[in-house]
Design a protein around this nucleic acid. Structure first.
Lengths: 257, 257
DNA sequence: GAGTGGTCTAGACCACAAC
DNA sequence: TTGTGGTCTAGACCACTCC
């Protein structure tokens, strides 16, 4: 009788489920532990599998869970802090480490898309080839980011776009040439995106997985010398800017007041 | 006979749908235009509504669409660039503008949660009250971020935690006192999250909506003087770091090579 | 009240990993 | 072969906005 909620706010089931699961993860599960499968969890909570999945999706988005087809759902470790451009600037791969060239297609010189041209600004002419270097960033033994680095041929005149080394060797050459230039500044932006098929493969995720897209423009006195578009796994990464990237910030930091 | 795809890769329907819709958005729709409703779109493409919704969700995540219950689905404008900490540092609200105190609960002095304590580090003692200031950031007439700023009472000794002004007035007082301190540095991280109920309300989104969580720590010689946790709408915002935040970067920048 | 997107169900089949 | 998560269906009802 009586003191039950008067104003019953119909909180969605999946939202409530997410809360319950989240607490269970904190209390009853260790990192890496495998959860019961979706069909059983759904039955245990008395909901349809689709509803259960809606809750799991949220938790995965928040980096609490990791789901792998054919394997199962495991408790994810805390997100790793990945340093993205300390205040001390530098050419790609200089100050920040962990980047590896993708040997497969290393680098090619091709005509850029209209969108990349726009990013490169006036420095690149539409008809000019642009070196495209593909790299992967590895942290804690896991691929965390896939990058496409666009360098107009005009930025690295010491390197022939037609002759010269091919594949990964060309990629290395482009990076080496870049670092001979005087970097005047850079420009960075971060936004949410979903992984393209190629990036997803590189990151060991399904296409459409949420990613943080970091777009960086590198300036010299001559203008925009290079543009990098790096896609980071949003589920496992926390991008850090500034001096310390090693500080622990768990999801709990957001359960505040 | 013949040249039809030999290796038929069963691309998911929703993925293909997303591509088709994305192209249609580029060609046949203007920003702000309203799409046919989900039931009709699903029928038109010959899929179940749930499948159609999966495609729409992706497009919304990428900032291409905006969906509002009871209204409809509209074509979203390009994401707005929001400056987050230019290299030139500063106390909250100093260099970057657009922040407004939330008058409702302005600021209160309470004991912080364990997670916030961890962020504040050694500077705050567990038993000490922490001023909690709630702010909202408005850009282009729209709320783009909700922030909780935590300032240990010890950081602003000129302000009594118990007496003194209340509500929004206290918030302003806390900010004013902060700016009298010598800022030695800061520390920033960005990660993906989902909107808590209170933040969602502030941002005019549903709970669970994707947000970019920007955590900033402000250092003085005495240690961590304040911590800010700001949640930005991931669908409408592109966070910019550095000097220029006004550059147009459309989604096309990622359709490359 | 009419129309929208949001939630939920109870099934089915598929792709993938591991045994 | 078995068991997992991923995709898809065809419905139903709810919450909200607008007229």
């Amino acid at each position: 009788m009586g003191t039950t909620q008067l104003e019953t706010v119909p909180e969605p089931k999946y939202w409530h489920l997410k809360t319950v699961l989240s607490e269970a993860l904190d209390q009853d599960f260790a990192v890496g532990e495998i959860l019961p499968n979706e069909r059983e969890l759904a039955a245990r909570f008395g909901v349809a599998r689709a509803t259960l999945r809606q809750a799991l999706e949220q938790l995965e988005l928040e980096g609490r869970l990791q789901r792998r087809r054919g394997v199962g759902t495991t408790v994810a470790p805390p997100r790793v802090g990945v340093a993205v451009g300390s205040s001390g600037q530098g050419w790609p791969g200089e100050s920040v480490d962990g980047w590896e060239l993708v040997d497969a297609d290393g680098a090619e010189a091709a005509l850029p898309s209209a969108a990349v041209l726009k990013l490169l600004g006036g420095a690149a002419v539409a008809d000019q080839p642009v070196h495209t270097v593909r790299r992967t960033r590895v942290s804690h033994g896991q691929a965390v980011a896939a990058e496409l680095l666009y360098v107009p041929a005009a930025s690295v005149p010491g390197l022939s776009a037609i002759d010269g080394p091919a594949g990964a060797a060309r990629g290395r050459a482009v990076l080496r040439e870049l670092q001979r230039l005087a970097l005047e500044g850079q420009d960075r932006s971060v936004e949410l995106g979903s992984a393209r098929a190629d990036d997803a493969k590189e990151l060991d995720r399904l296409p459409g997985a949420p990613v943080l897209v970091v777009t960086t423009r590198y300036f010299t006195a001559a203008g925009t010398a290079a543009v990098s578009v790096a896609t980071y796994r949003a589920d496992t990464c926390r991008l850090t800017f500034g001096d310390s990237g090693d500080v622990e910030i768990t999801h709990e930091a957001r359960v505040a007041s």
